[in-house]
Simulated assay, not measured.
Amino acid sequence: MSVPIVVHGLSPSGGRSVAINGQTVGLAHSDQDLVEFLRRAGLNDAWDLLDDAHWIEWRGGRAHRYEAA
């Protein structure tokens, strides 16, 4: 199954790279950052999507965790 939003694993300095439809849109350091990226992409209901596996795949770490590995 392919989802439109991928939150990649933790970077060594903290934060997670976020891709929407295969395009990297930024480095999130919190759910607030992630929601802002999604809002800029036109997803105004972004808070409701954070735990929806049809929309977001959390890779390489637990969901909602952004601190340095």
Rank of each mutant, 00 (worst) to 15 (best):
M1Y: 08
S2M: 11
V3A: 14
V3G: 06
P4E: 13
P4V: 06
P4L: 10
I5W: 10
V7M: 12
V7C: 12
H8Y: 13
H8I: 09
H8E: 15
G9R: 06
G9M: 04
G9A: 11
G9P: 01
G9K: 04
P12S: 15
S13C: 01
G14V: 03
G14C: 05
G14W: 09
S17V: 03
S17N: 03
S17M: 07
V18E: 13
A19S: 15
I20W: 12
N21M: 12
G22E: 10
G22S: 11
G22Q: 08
T24F: 15
V25E: 05
V25G: 06
G26R: 00
H29N: 10
H29G: 08
S30F: 05
D31Y: 08
F37V: 03
F37W: 04
F37N: 06
F37H: 10
F37Q: 04
L38Y: 12
L38M: 15
L38I: 03
A41R: 11
A41L: 08
G42T: 06
L43A: 10
L43M: 14
N44P: 00
N44S: 15
N44M: 14
D45C: 02
D45Y: 10
A46Y: 04
W47C: 04
W47F: 07
D48M: 13
D48V: 06
D51F: 11
D52E: 12
D52N: 14
H54M: 09
W55V: 05
W55E: 05
I56H: 02
E57D: 09
W58N: 01
R59T: 03
R59F: 01
R59E: 10
G60A: 06
G60K: 04
G60N: 03
R62E: 12
R62C: 10
R62F: 14
A63L: 01
H64W: 02
H64R: 02
R65A: 15
R65P: 00
A69P: 00
